[in-house]
Design a binder for these strands. Structure first.
Lengths: 198, 198, 198, 198
DNA sequence: TATGAATGAGGTTTCATTCAT
DNA sequence: TATGAATGAAACCTCATTCAT
């Protein structure tokens, strides 16, 4: 009932062109966001994609839509990254590894950590996207680790997620800043603070 | 008889007005930076100060000059905040208190933590300002604490300072984010990781 | 069947509109340059053309581009003006007529002579344009006339061209100044100075 | 009645200070006009004179007043330059020498020739100044030379004066332009044109 | 009388967004 | 559906000019 009553017959080909364009735009935007920040001129993104500016607006009516789409796309990979626990690790090890994978993600997608705090359009949506996709994963990892007695139980996944993200900020602009060490410090702080080894 | 015995002084009153205006501008800029970010229109700052735009440029020829001035002004207070050690504390306690004072500073100067990472003009100068003023203080505190055996000695003050700053980011925009808890977590990670308390 | 056999052509109509706008801009700029000088506000030119300011910048990214374009367009006509020698004239007559045509050009394009000396952006380009287009023509005319024994051979076309241009300056602003008489005086000075009245 | 009822007694000293300042301003303006053109910022002139901006305005309420004053000052020297005819010269030689002296003046006061055509405030006054001071001198020289049969009688001093001025334009900006040759050409055109080849 | 701080109009340029083709 | 030309608001920065001291 849906596609049937459309004009001459859009033909699968056209539809796939459209999708191809959307992909081009996502890739282009990701790359441009890195190069020029999340406030990069729309024209720049269109040019990078080899498309017209109107096409950007057709696919992503607001900048927010584009921003979210760019990163949603990249979050998918991370959301499933906790699914293969690698068997014989302690829950803390699993948590630890995921956290660093998260940091990898933020750091390699240069500028993403900073972008999360942009006060521009799309900002809220972007944040929500992260929360929706990653918070459940991290929450589970924290709970597992706490249940196993490895780590504190009084740390909220939300705070922890933002903290990790924050610690990644500035890696690019301050080349001397070693975010990884600080992330490890945060992880260390998470471990059951020695109060009673016995 | 009149002008002859004056110093070159071009009327003391005027000079004090000028200084008053400079202060107005610093206050206005601090407030506007918070509201609109470090890239706020100059016109906005002028308006907030109740002065003309030209006056802003007279006092601070480049945006960098203004940005640096705004924060240098506020750093002075913090740089001396470690001078009154409050006697009977452990070095770790002193460190801990200063770190929270630093966080207070960043958080109450709403937006300042974010501003530290702006990739705009004045950015480098701002960063340098922080490094020059605060790094020595923090470095000393860390060393004292490590010497006393309270904390690790393998943490660089530079990383730690940026980390604290980073953890404060987003406090305003994500009201649910509890930066203080994360700072405490980082401080906890700093403590000599309970090799054997006994 | 449809798009396949078209060239890449992005709709011929659009392109012609674009060209029409460019022409509008050239006309508008020529007119405004006369009225307000070569430094006229871009906004003025846009208004005169009935277009937006952005459009000016799209077509002519720098002021120099616009300035040069305005006059290049008008130089074309002059560069070929020496091609129809009108048969039975002496080379000196031909030279004389072209010089006055050049002066006509400068004077009727009110303000152009002055514009040639603007120390603003685009100035060098404008001068070069004149040199490239007109100098060869004038040089040939001078040589022909000198070869025929009508005029001195020791006058450089470059100096002469600038001199003609200079003599046209002020025609508008000093209504009483009769540039033509001075041009004739210069031409008279060019003739083989009374070889031997004996 | 006039100076008598003034305040405490301005004292000759003060008056001479005022005059000294005026001279400072004239010198400074002349120098700045050369360096930055006739539209140079007022502040620049004040700075060059080592005085406040307000003082500039006190002495020369409009820019026109300053411009005129600067050049009037320099015209005085030229106006008398024809007074010492050096005895044994032909009137044409005297004319010729004065013309080159005029050109010297324009060329060495870099930018002055161009300034004569500025469409800015003070322009008309400047032009008038030249006319009033120099036209009588040049007119007399032309008449003397014509009376002696050296040169044409049908050339108006006004046109000739402007022509000389114009030919000096661009000497600075087009280093390759040899204004002197063109002035000589104009002078050559002035000579009784090859009496009659018949 | 001299000063120079303050003002703000006016120029430049950039881009987000619309819309005719 | 895709295009990119056009628009114009908005930011920047520079002085001419005023006026309190």
């Amino acid at each position: 009932m849906s596609t049937a009553d459309m004009p001459p017959a859009p033909s699968g080909r056209q539809r796939s062109d459209v999708r191809r364009n959307e992909q081009k735009l996502l890739d282009a935007a990701a790359s441009v966001f890195v190069r020029m920040g999340i406030d990069a001129p729309v024209r720049e993104i269109a040019a990078e994609a080899g498309l017209g500016m109107g096409t950007v607006y057709r696919h992503f009516p607001t900048r927010a839509d584009l921003v979210v789409a760019v990163f949603r796309h990249q979050l998918d990979a991370l959301a499933v990254a906790a699914d293969n626990p690698a068997a014989a690790d302690t829950p803390y090890e699993v948590l630890r590894r995921w956290v660093h994978r998260f940091a990898d993600f933020l750091v390699t997608k240069h500028g993403l950590a900073e972008a999360l705090h942009s006060d521009q359009a799309g900002f809220e949506a972007l944040h929500n996207e992260f929360v929706e996709r990653l918070l459940p994963v991290l929450d589970q990892l924290l709970k597992d680790s706490a249940s196993a007695g490895c780590t504190r139980a009084d740390v909220r996944a939300y705070d922890f997620m933002l903290a990790i993200g924050n610690l990644c900020i500035g890696v690019e602009t301050f080349p001397d800043y070693q975010a990884r060490r600080m992330i490890d410090l945060l992880l260390a702080g998470l471990t059951r603070t020695a109060p009673a080894p016995s």
